[in-house]
Structure formats: structure tokens, C-alpha cells
Design a protein around this nucleic acid. Structure first.
Lengths: 220, 220, 220, 220
DNA sequence: AATGAATGAGACTTCATTCAT
DNA sequence: CATGAATGAAGTCTCATTCAT
């Protein structure tokens, strides 16, 4: 737990999360690109439309991003890092292992944190999820950056709860999978279905049901 | 629930599932299209590559399908029907309501049946899932054809098990969601992760863990 | 002398010289390309202008030639072959070794033959000469196809005249170089300078002077 | 013949030959431009690459040269002057008419002088030769500045040798052409072919052969 | 029914040039 | 003087679709 974060991740986090160094136009280009990519998908998006929405000349895009693909990467790579930021930052990491007495507490914290993130980054997540299957480099990155890191951290936390006898005697990966499935099912349904007009979605109730389900399902 | 299936669905099932009426070339076109769409995504696929792989002239595609979009629909619509075929076919429907004594039995049957389907139709499912977000007509179709129908049928079955006191007192939709999440998590992990070389995936164990998880989580 | 011509050369000669298999539009494209390339140089020529002059849509060019470069090659490669055709064709080859009693006769024949060729293919030659320095593949081709073949044949003929004591005792390559320089100087001056209005170019006299110069310069 | 050199030529000679007045950046731009133009040809060269190689900003080029074309001219015009400098400079001019007893001596001096020049200015010459055909203003300049001047001077010298009975009774222009052809053939072969690895080019022998050829060919 | 040449709109990208800093 | 971000015209090339054969 005490080993330092790899410097390149630290760096990317800085560079990616804050768009500080970007010029105004650059930021507008990226924002338009996020819009358009999320709406139509990368392949069906045209740089001319992105330029138009950003209010810049098409050539300007290519001054900042050598290719359309690079523009995509400039969006996806930081997003993948943001997705796992809580697992990487030192302060949070310590929190992970210490602050939660019960698995339930931990679950609630995770859901709240990531749900907030997801709500604020719907388009970004959509782009990542949509494009992942078609770009092997992204997949590589995803496995290396997201899966491995997250798994690493979660194994520690969940291992602890399991050792304390709070959880059933299942492989840690299985516990992660089952918990994650239920949470994602909740989040996805909520996102897709819960926002429809006239939908009878009682968020509080569903959240409780989901957590209850996980806790019962994983009880020793 | 004893009303007849809508005739147009019946028709589509016939037309879509059996590619009987297709000429040889037509079938080859559709098969190539499935390949290419699954590989590159609809927008990034070119009709000329599809024609090439199908061994037909470029123009031939447009003799059978007015537009590229229509070719996509000719793949997606039947697939969506195939996805819910078990819920629609009369014989199966009766089975649903009668054959299973326990929810666990029912779950096992569903998993086995749909897993088989998924394994035989990976590319098709991939296309549907990938394209759904970008084509409102498809979404419409999906909701109308898949969600509504499945929900309708499942509510009966699950309502029965719930009435029998086998399941916790949760809204039927919630039960469906939680069960489906866990199953899909299992299937997805198995598909993406279980086939990697050197992966330590014990299918039997994971399946049992998943079913156990659901049953415990949903126990009254 | 009696060994067969390499089949690939034979083939290229057929394909390149006769534009038989070309469709009408293809021929028009190539002809326009020759015009434009010769006028402006390859790099400064635009496919859109070529298309316009050919009276076809721009896309049509790329149906017949994958890239602009391929269009260039489709012009240059056959031209290089045409440049040395006399040295390759069997009938001519035999002629080379037998028909000429004196080096002077041989020179006159060569000049006449190649001058005719040059007059009919000014643009083509111009393109080859202009582009050669910028395309390594063309240089490779030029050395392999033109230099080597021509040298091979000329060495035989000139070796014979030298053996007969008609020529000075110089390396055959030197004789070739000196003769070629004088001829090319004649041809070039004639082409560039001789066609100007008011130029005092007496072609007959200059030709005689050139041949006289070579013969005297190379006399034993 | 004793009339002064046209002042504008004098001026250009000063300005072009010495790059004295240029700032450091300006000189670096011109040098990079020479490199790139020689490598890729004018039309295929980009000002951005030139700027990069020169280590200056893109805009800087256009502070010193209004257009890309002007940059080309700033290279080509002085080069054309340098090509004929020996014929223009007063001191050299006198030398021309007095110092050489034989045409052979004169030839040797010219070859040595111009060969040295060519070796030190390969890229420049390449650019001039390559671009001449595509820029009518350059052609104009070339005829006016190079051809006319050189012809003027050479006619005097060669006229003298001819009057002395050293040379055959041919038009002076013909003598020039024949001599120049042989020399250029020598220089070109030497440049292109003589530097290849494994080439059996004996420079001394070829030079002698060439001079011998010219002298014999032009003997009275 | 099948072909494949032809199209022209539009895709991504490059580039010479301008201008505020 | 120098910079480099910005531009928009133009470049090469792709693609869905049409149509005469």
C-alpha cells in the first residue's frame, strides 16, 4: 500500500484532469469533440462538424491534434484515468483501508462517489465504452491502467472484510464481480430507464434494494 | 396473457430467423456484413468491403438492400427477435409458466438457454449493442420488442415464484434487474475474461457462485 | 545475344506500349495526367485538374489508380520501357549486330530512330527526367531497366566496331558516354533552342557537324 | 567588349554571392530552404519544414520573404549569377582572352574551375535545373543572364582560337555546344555514376579521354 | 438478377499566409 | 524583429449510391 504511484500516472492525472494548459480554442475543440463523439460515435463524427460547433476553422483542429484519432485519444486516455482516480490517489487509498467498518459502508461510499462521477461525465464514459471495442490500443490501455489498478486496490480492501468474516468464502474476484454487476445494473437502469418520463423509478428504494441484495447475497 | 402474438412479430420471426427466402448471394452479403459490422462498427464499415468479402459486385448489395442502413436493419431486427424468441414462441411460453418448481431451476434453464444463444451469435449481439445508442429507430424497436415483451413474460413467472413465497418482497422489476445484472456480469466476464490465455476462470465454480448469490440475495 | 528477353519485360512492353486494355475514360485520364504533369510537374499537379481536363469526375481517377503516385508510375514505367524498346525487341537486336558496316551508319540510325521517338514523346520524357530525382523507386527502375539493358546491348555493338579497328582504343563505356553526350547535346539544343522563332538553327548542318565531331573524336 | 558590366548585375553579384547583409536567421532559413528544395523539389517542400530545419518560427520566413516563391528566387537568382561569375568579373574576363595559348589549356582551366564550383554547390545547381522548366520568369532570367552573357564571352575566346587555326571551321556556337556537351557528359557521369560504391570510375583517365575527344573532334 | 464503372459529396489533412502578441 | 496560433482554400482520397450493359 505504501509504494509510490508510478510517476507517469501521476503526470497523466495532472495533465489530463486539469485542462489547464489548454488554450481557449483547444478546450472548445475538445468539448465539441466530446459532444459529437458521444452523439454519433467516433467513426460517424466529422472533424468539420466538430470545428463548426467549436467555432473554429477546421484547420485549427489539426494544429492542436495531429489526427482525428489523436483527438479521440486526448479524450479517452484522461477519462480512463479519471475513472480510477480514487484508487490511485494516495489520500484516497489510505481511506480505502481504514475508514470503513463494514462492507456495506464501503459499498455505499463507492456507489456515491462513482455515481457522482458518472453523472458529471456521462458523455465521456459513453465514448470510452463505445470506442473500446474498436481500438486495440485503447483496450490495452484499459486493461493496463484500469483493470489492473482497480483490481489491485479492491483485492486489499475486500480481502480485509473477508478476513474479518463479513463476507462469504468466495474468491475475492468473484465478490468483486458480483458486487460490481449489481451496482452497474443499478446505475445503468437508473441512467437509461430512470430518467424517462413517466417511469416509476424510486431511486432510494432501488438503491436500498440493491445494497440489501448484495449484502445478503454475499453474507457468510 | 393468452392473447395471440402480434402477427407482425410472427412474420418477422419467420422471415428473420430462417433465412430461407434469401438467395445465395443475399445470404453471403448478410454474413459478410455481420462480420464487418462486428469488426469495425457500422459507421466504419464500407459497403465495398462487404461486397468484396461476400464475393459479389458492389452494386449487388444495393439490389437487395436499398441502403446501407437497410442492410444493418436486416441484421439487427431479426437479432433482436432472436434474443427474445424463447419468450415469444407459444410452446416455450407455456413451458415458462409450468415447468419450473423453483426459481433456481428457472434461472439455470434461462442461463443455459441464453448462454448457448449468445455463444452462437456473438457478432450479432455485438452489433446490436454497439449500434443501439446511435439509431433511435433501433432503440424504439428494442424497447417495444425486447423490453416490453420480456418484461411481460417475466412478470408472470416471477410473480408466481414470489407469490409462492420463494422470493423476497421486492418489486418484480427489481428482482428482474438484480437477477439479470448478476447473470450478465457472469456472462460478460466469462466472455471477455474467461477466454484469455492463462486466465484462472473456473466456469463451473463461477456459475454456482452466481446462482448462489442471486438465490441468497433474493431469499425472503 | 540469343537468350530470351525476360518475360516480365515482354509483358510490360505489351501492357505499357499498347493502351489496348484501357477503357476510354482511363485513356483520357492518363492523357490528361501526362499533359498536366509535364506542364507543372508531378507535385504541383492536382488530381482535380487532371479530372477536369479528362472530363471525368475526380473519383473516377481513383477507381483506376489507387493513388496519385500510381498514376505517375503508370506513365513513367511504360515510358522507360519505350525508351529502350529498340534495344529489347528481338528483331531489332539482331539488326543491331549485323546491319551496320560503320559506326557512323550505326550512329545515324540510332539518332534518327530515337529522335523520332523523342519528338513524339516529349511530354513523357520530360516527366521521366523531371521526376526521376525525387522518386527512389523510379531511380531503381531506371538503373535496372534502362541503364543496364542499354549498356549490355551497346557494349556488344561498339565492341565489334572497336575490334574492327574503327574506333579509338578507349573503354567501351567511355565511347558510349562521349557519343551519347554529343548526341544528347545536339538533341537538347535542337529541341530547346532550335524551335525558337528567329533562331538560326540549320538542322542539317548541325547534325553533320555532330556526327563528324564524334567520328573524328573517336577515330583510332 | 570593354563596356562596363550592367550595374544591376554588379549589384546582384554583391547581394547574392555574399550573404553579408543577412541576419543569422535569414541565412539559416535560406540554407534550410536549399536543403529541402534540393531534396524534395520546390512544389513538394513545405515552408513549415523549412522553418523547422532552420529552427525559426513559421511566421519568421514570411517576415524575410514575402512568399514561398520569393524564397525560391532568392536562391535561384544568385545561383545563376554564380554559375557565370567567371565570365562576368572583370579580372577574370581579361584572363579569358589572354592567358591561354591553346584551346586545350583553356578547356582544362574551365573544367577545373566549374567542377570545383559544381562540387561546392550541388544542391543549388540541382534546384536551378529542376525548377527552370516550371517558372517562366526563371527561364527568362536564365536566357538573359546566363546564356547571353556566357555566349558573348565564349565567342570571343573561341573566335580567337579559331582564328589562330587551332579549331575546325565550324560555327562558334557549334563548337561551344560540342565542347559543352562532352564536358557536361563527363561531369554528369562523374557525379551520378562515379560516386557509387564499386563503380569502376577512373577519374583521371576519363578526364583525359574527354579532353582528347574534344580536341580531336574539333581539330581543323 | 448481376455487374462494376462512374459519380460527386464529403472525409481527413496540409499548407502558405496573416496577425495579435 | 520574432513568434506561433489561426485560417480557409485546396489537396488527396473514400464512399454510398446509380445506371447502362
Amino acid at each position: 500500500m505504501s509504494e509510490a504511484i508510478e510517476p507517469w500516472i501521476e503526470e497523466l492525472l495532472q495533465a489530463g484532469l486539469g485542462r489547464d494548459k489548454m488554450t481557449d480554442k483547444q478546450r472548445r475543440i475538445v468539448e465539441s469533440a466530446i459532444e459529437v463523439f458521444a452523439e454519433k460515435g467516433y467513426a460517424a463524427s466529422s472533424t468539420s462538424e466538430i470545428a463548426q460547433r467549436a467555432g473554429v476553422a477546421e484547420g485549427t483542429i489539426f494544429r492542436h491534434f495531429k489526427t482525428k484519432k489523436e483527438l479521440l485519444l486526448s479524450i479517452v486516455t484522461p477519462t480512463m484515468l479519471k475513472m480510477i482516480a480514487p484508487f490511485l490517489l494516495r489520500e484516497f487509498r489510505d481511506v480505502l483501508t481504514q475508514d470503513y467498518d463494514s462492507y456495506e459502508q464501503f459499498l455505499r461510499a463507492m456507489i456515491e462517489n462513482r455515481l457522482l462521477f458518472l453523472q458529471k461525465n456521462k458523455s465521456l464514459i459513453k465514448i470510452v465504452v463505445q470506442e473500446l471495442p474498436f481500438h486495440p490500443e485503447l483496450q490495452e490501455q484499459f486493461v493496463q491502467v484500469v483493470l489492473v489498478k482497480v483490481k489491485e486496490r479492491l483485492e486489499i480492501v475486500i480481502g480485509k472484510f473477508k478476513a474479518e468474516g463479513q463476507l462469504a468464502d468466495l474468491p475475492v474476484m468473484t465478490i468483486i464481480r458480483l458486487s460490481a454487476s449489481a451496482i452497474m445494473g443499478y446505475v445503468l437502469t437508473r441512467t437509461l430507464y430512470g430518467t424517462r418520463e413517466g417511469a416509476d423509478w424510486d431511486d432510494e428504494r432501488e438503491l436500498e434494494a440493491t445494497i440489501g441484495f448484495i449484502m445478503k447475497g454475499l453474507a457468510p
